[in-house]
Design a protein around this nucleic acid. Sequence first.
DNA 1: TATAGATGCAACTATTCGGTTGCGCAAAAC
DNA 2: GTTTTGCGCAACCGAATAGTTGCATCTATA
Lengths: 106, 106
Amino acid sequence: MRRDIFQAIADPTRRAIIALIALQAMTPNGIAENFNTTRQSISKHLRILTECELVKQEHLGREIYYSLEIDKMKEIDKWLDQYRKIWQTRFNQLDNVLSNLKKNKK
Amino acid sequence: MRRDIFQAIADPTRRAIIALIALQAMTPNGIAENFNTTRQSISKHLRILTECELVKQEHLGREIYYSLEIDKMKEIDKWLDQYRKIWQTRFNQLDNVLSNLKKNKK
DNA sequence: TATAGATGCAACTATTCGGTTGCGCAAAAC
DNA sequence: GTTTTGCGCAACCGAATAGTTGCATCTATA
């Protein structure tokens, strides 16, 4: 069972769940109301999100509130960082090209 | 056939391919040499990456060079941005807490 | 022109995945 | 104490996926 964060966000339903609970904790039933699917299917997604620690639970009586573990999202940001450096460099190179063109024009 | 960028980067082999060709274009054979798998399997991954425009081809004789379409990576960055705002806000809140503690200490 | 190399495409297989259904358990409501 | 509600877990099914094998195509090279 491969359970990494990239596989977790690959599914559009899971990304929608993440967006839903990003600002406020919600119960599985509450989340499921926003989708055209069963509560069990949402529960399975929540389980996957929990397993890769993208989501945390808080038990309140018989209800379980799920909320986003925002720090985990930084891992994606960290992975992106190596590529961000590349596109920033290319942007700077383009910038140089443009300023050189400007210089030659003078 | 669902082909979005999030599904494309979900596979660890594809992420490794992306990392490989990020800085220099490579042929399928050249890429495959870096993995314990067949050339055909790499070709399938390249096809998926091409379909979601994460990768571009350049034909040179009988060889095809694949390189990263770095601009497409910005889409992930854009998606992350909404969550980046959240963790920055929380960080600022923490910052306020800390500065308040400092103030009270004085 | 004949041969070897680089590649894409199609068919097949084993595995994984998303979703549904059914069940059991614990907490709340009656 | 019985019923209802909220939830997780397991079994099952159809679809998608990663990988392999085999073949066709195009381009170099001898």
